[in-house]
Design a protein around this nucleic acid. Structure first.
Lengths: 234, 234
DNA sequence: GTTAAAATGCTACTTAGGTAGCACTAAGCA
DNA sequence: TGCTTAGTGCTACCTAAGTAGCATTTTAAC
């Protein structure tokens, strides 16, 4: 990143707060940032990835993006990762250098740092101490995949819906963080179902007094009842 | 590993052939092996893991093991990973140092190398060059999880069954490698279904002339037809 | 070889979840 | 302001997949 860049200091500040990079000293941080350029992607921008992930590596500064797979035959989407501030992509291509076919779409206006993949790989080689924080991050991604996988196989849809909500609920406000403004369609994409079915179960949650939704605004009325939905299946 | 150990040379030889470690020179390889001890686990041994994965790290020398999750309520199992020669576990705990609850069961008599987790972590820190092969290995695990996840969400069971078979078919002999002797129950556990359903679709595959099974021995008669099952859903 | 246990191949039945369709409502925009 | 579009809440229906049960066959153990 050119040091005369308008967003240099802003990016540096955010990078220093990123759990993956926060242990680095100023000079190391600047050596990292020097390879990156600042990008802005508008809300609802779609990127049909594939070869591209091979060449570019991204750090999310702000906004949300989804990485998803599509089944053209059925016309269904499945959101594999919901990326937010401090997330990196694509770590799989970063690690093995192979193509990783994924669709990407911004949910908000997004700010990103972008660098050539080989440059990021080279920087890591020169700064192996980053593995102290990078490997736990990769592990957290793997855990998300694994949890998601076993849930999809072993749990029914109301359970998956309840788990999704629990994993995003704010203990204080009892509101959903990050997914509060998503449509039922997007929620369905996250748990591997369809809008109609998600809506069906949301109505049933409402009737049980678990939550109250009006227009993309969810209030968890009874967190305990929601937790029960996960343990006792009915 | 004690250098007087009966299995020392045998283990060293296998380790040297493992794609993850094969680029190491003799001395480095021996420094690795010195931390490990040789173990034998009998067929059908079950390990209820959890805290244990925190403290021990394993390399598979021979035999197959499955890592799986259980839903006690439904009494269903789901096989997350089928581990074989050259596989490592648990890489997630290795990377983030957190507990990883998984059930493990040997499918064959198995030989393993076992070391304290902290020792393995320490060895990696001292030999960062291992990341050249270790990170691609981790990435391959992630890809398995991700593929499995999207398949489970977007594909129906005959498709998942066909994909499973395709991923294990030997192009030469048209027989299944590694999963050929598994029961329908175990196959079901791998694709997130149940024995009865898997059997139903196997019978339908037979009728279509795709394959021939008699008693845990599968012959793919028409590989092309099997591939079609994956692309054209019916 | 005999016997018990495991695996397989079925039939019949139940049900969760997907689909289609439509009315209604809120949000966004000219 | 009205108009368009996206999102929501329903009903009715369909279907794949799960369940139960059982007879048969194979394998492994004794």
């Amino acid at each position: 990143m050119d040091s005369k860049d308008l967003h240099y200091n802003y990016s540096l500040e955010l990078l220093a707060k990123n759990p993956i990079f926060k242990n680095l000293d100023e000079a190391t941080l600047e050596s990292l940032l020097s390879g990156f350029s600042y990008k802005k992607w508008e809300k609802n921008t779609e990127f049909f990835h594939g070869d591209q992930t091979l060449y570019k590596f991204y750090i999310v500064l702000s906004g949300r993006l989804k990485m998803y797979q599509v089944d053209v035959e059925q016309g269904r989407e499945f959101t594999v990762f919901l990326l937010k501030q401090n997330d990196l992509f694509d770590v799989i291509s970063l690690m093995d250098g192979h193509k990783h076919s994924m669709n990407i779409e911004t949910i908000d206006d997004c700010e990103l740092l972008c660098a050539p993949m080989h440059l990021m790989r080279h920087w890591i080689e020169e700064h192996p101490e980053i593995n102290k924080t990078l490997l736990p991050y990769v592990a957290s991604r793997m855990r998300i995949l694994e949890t998601n996988l076993t849930d999809n196989v072993l749990s029914d849809i109301p359970t998956r819906l309840a788990k999704l909500m629990l994993s995003y609920v704010d203990e204080q406000s009892h509101k959903l963080k990050l997914i509060n403004d998503l449509s039922h369609d997007e929620i369905a994409n996250m748990i591997g179902s369809t809008r109609a079915v998600v809506n069906r179960h949301i109505q049933s949650f409402k009737k049980s007094g678990i939550l109250d939704i009006h227009r993309k605004n969810t209030d968890i009325l009874d967190l305990h009842l929601l937790e029960e939905r996960v343990t006792d299946r009915r």
